[in-house]
């Protein structure tokens, strides 16, 4: 049967696919080592004449990436922490507690899953402004957490729904409160799903361009993706810096993913599919 057959045919078929799918990365890496004039000559297959490692130093320096990196890390830590604190208990409630109106509250949460943030950004700006949260990392963090809550709750609810009811009931008979059940029984079980939630919220925060663009105005509170804006003016762009800056921005994510990919896959699939 197929599973015992040699893996050569599948391997041979996948190799060109791999090249095609990773091709854009190779092109980006190569372009990030070219001078502006070489990029302008625009032969996509030409190797850089002399690799311009200087581009990376310049992007770091000119874009002020050091400060941006620190802000991005604070932003990311805040979003991940708040997402866990809010979504895990809420997911548990929607999966295991039956109270009147539960369905309606859940639908209200699910609406958020379907609405792109671009559609509501102007009122969102007003709300943040009235709370004095514009131009602050606290403001962007709360907005991003809120934006991620629907998916977070959805993921955690799916996972907890797959945990047998009997576990909860047994603990209830032993006199445990729901908070205790969540802390002692459920969360230890949910490690893979929590890991997936961490990675998904971290990834979307790290890459978020739109909300920071609208909310973070002063350079001292801006995050990494906004650094790339500094390389462009109305009529001209420093592509060598945009490209090397892009590589700088996503290198940490790629390394983190490669290190944690096994747990991530596990958590994502258990979270999403066991529901």
């Amino acid at each position: 049967m197929s599973r015992r057959r040699s893996e050569l045919p599948a391997f041979a078929a996948l190799l060109p696919a791999l090249l095609l799918i990773l091709g854009p990365f190779l092109w980006l890496l190569m372009s990030s080592l070219k001078s502006e004039a070489e990029i302008g000559q625009a032969n996509p297959f030409a190797l850089p004449k002399a690799p311009m490692w200087q581009n990376y130093a310049d992007a770091w320096q000119i874009g002020g990436f050091g400060d941006l990196l620190v802000n991005s890390l604070f932003n990311l830590a805040g979003v991940v922490l708040l997402t866990l604190i809010t979504c895990a208990p809420a997911g548990y409630v929607f999966a295991k507690l039956k109270f009147p109106g539960r369905e309606w509250v859940f639908y209200l949460v699910i609406i958020g899953l379907t609405i792109p943030v671009q559609a509501i950004v102007i009122p969102l700006y007003q709300v943040l402004f009235n709370l004095g949260l514009i131009n602050s990392l606290a403001g962007i963090t709360l907005a991003q957490v809120s934006n991620g809550i629907p998916f977070g709750i959805f993921l955690m609810r799916s996972f907890f729904a797959g945990v047998p009811d009997e576990l909860v009931e047994a603990a209830r008979i032993d006199g445990a409160s729901h908070t205790q059940i969540l802390g002692r029984v459920m969360l230890p079980l949910a490690t893979p799903a929590l890991q997936a939630l961490v990675i998904i919220s971290a990834l979307s925060t790290w890459n978020d361009f739109f909300l920071p663009l609208v909310i973070l105005i002063s350079p001292e509170v801006q995050t990494l993706p906004l650094g790339l804006v500094r390389f462009a003016s109305t009529y001209s762009t420093d592509f060598r810096l945009v490209f090397s800056g892009t590589v700088i921005t996503f290198l940490p994510v790629i390394i983190l993913y490669i290190l944690t990919q096994r747990r991530f896959t596990e958590g994502l699939t258990q979270g999403a599919l066991k529901g």
Binding site: P89, A90, I111, I120, V127, L128, V145
Partner: peptide
């Protein structure tokens, strides 16, 4: 915690 944040920064703007 979830509903308070969500109500303020998502539902209200909606």
């Amino acid at each position: 915690p979830a509903l308070a944040i969500y109500a303020l920064f998502s539902l209200l703007p909606i």
